[in-house]
Design a protein around this nucleic acid. Structure first.
Length: 109
DNA sequence: GGTTTGACCATAA
DNA sequence: CTTATGGCCAAAC
């Protein structure tokens, strides 16, 4: 490889690819997606990518992605509504029990 | 091409 | 439980 300076060409695209693989009724966290991509510290970009996805109206189930606290980072109530609609139950404090609803990929590497 | 911005995360108090 | 702080790094300006 000539330069070898390729770290993440089109990071957003990779994020979308992961989010599309999330099955209905399951959720995942930003940091976890970042870890899947091989970058444990780029959780912020995962959220940023999804923000762009909403702006570009890209068909991605972004509502299935929450933060490490199990709460939605979006200000709107739409995300919670969509999740409950998929069968996800929220805790009294308004957070999701990740131990139950977190999506665990079949194969990790 | 440096500066600003984020749909975050871990830790501390 | 909440609030505050530092760090992480790509994309947009």
């Amino acid at each position: 490889m000539t330069a070898g300076r390729v770290l993440s060409p089109g990071f957003h695209s990779r994020v979308f690819d992961i989010v599309r693989r999330i099955p209905r009724g399951k959720v995942t966290t930003y940091g976890r997606i970042a870890a899947m991509l091989g970058h444990p510290g780029v959780a912020r970009h995962v959220g940023n990518a999804l923000a762009v996805c909403g702006r570009e109206e890209i068909p991605v189930p972004w509502h299935r992605v929450v933060n490490a606290s199990g709460k939605v980072s979006t200000n709107g109530t739409d995300q919670r509504t969509l999740l409950e609609r998929e069968g996800v139950r929220f805790s009294p404090n308004g957070a999701i029990p990740l131990k139950i609803y977190v999506w665990q990929p079949p194969e990790a590497e």
